[in-house]
Nucleic acid binder design. Sequence first.
DNA 1: TTTCCATTTGCAACTAGTTGCAAACAGGAG
DNA 2: CTCCTGTTTGCAACTAGTTGCAAATGGAAA
Lengths: 163, 163
Amino acid sequence: MHHTEFLDDLRQAGHRLTPQREMILQVICESDGHLTADEISARVRKRYSYLNKSAVYRALELFVRLGLVNPTDFGQGRVTYEMHRDPHHHHLVCRRCGKMTQADADLFAPVEKKLRDEYAFLPALDHFAIFGLCQKCQRSGAERKGRRSGVRGSGAEVKKVYR
Amino acid sequence: MHHTEFLDDLRQAGHRLTPQREMILQVICESDGHLTADEISARVRKRYSYLNKSAVYRALELFVRLGLVNPTDFGQGRVTYEMHRDPHHHHLVCRRCGKMTQADADLFAPVEKKLRDEYAFLPALDHFAIFGLCQKCQRSGAERKGRRSGVRGSGAEVKKVYR
DNA sequence: TTTCCATTTGCAACTAGTTGCAAACAGGAG
DNA sequence: CTCCTGTTTGCAACTAGTTGCAAATGGAAA
């Protein structure tokens, strides 16, 4: 998959093909991992004199809107981006050891069905980062120090930023 | 439910009961909606001379960790907080008109089961904000302007920050 | 009641990301 | 090829949130 494949997508959708956008897309396309906005800037600037950070964020926003790129927030205080590739996947992130694994695209199929059928809501359930405990950390952790009443909380600690 | 109920929770968990923490918890407890960190600061300061923003963020992080408070990121560039109350709920947010509705706590039950059984992963699936299109906006929108290949994308636009 | 120390606060400097606006420019029309 | 206009960029100032550190303090122990 070469980034030039996508350049027509841009123009066809009525957007302009600027060198900044092309370089940014190229950099993301050449990487097979998750890149932060800052990493993308750095890589582009190796080849292209200067590039403003607003342009990077605005280009990323556009690519995400067009479905070319997927953003993921792993809760490290910065969002990462990767090319959208099929088949889709979700990320399972262990809150204790940080280990990351992948889960199938169809994980949320029953949720999607329920939301459509019972709530008449068409959800966007692409590509989530799901926090929790991996197998190893479930075993090692004694953690659940019971609370006075069983009322509050499902138990799992919920970290800050999620969507 | 009065905020003093929770003060023992703090101490029992080995944390100190400071006036800042008490006032912050009280403010969240007295509100039945979602408050931003800034709104919380403002409300506390009406009663308590001064309060630093670091203290607010650190207190909120603690309350979230203890399961007293739920954070939600509605994608407006700031996280909101509310008391954790049972029964639980999730938020459905329309990406076009912004309308917000609630969904049942058990929405993710099948996902949780699958992750436990097939991935040996214990997820924290409390209290999500799910983006998509509400019934009205599904009807009104012609939007899906077909793409060259059916390959990429589930269709739904994925906004920036999600977890 | 006083002492003590780990925890917590305030502060200031920092990072990630956003926004409004003027200048630059992609790309279509003449 | 040149002109034109709406789009996009660069910039600077801004917001939300984080971090390291010194000073203050909750609360346990003497």
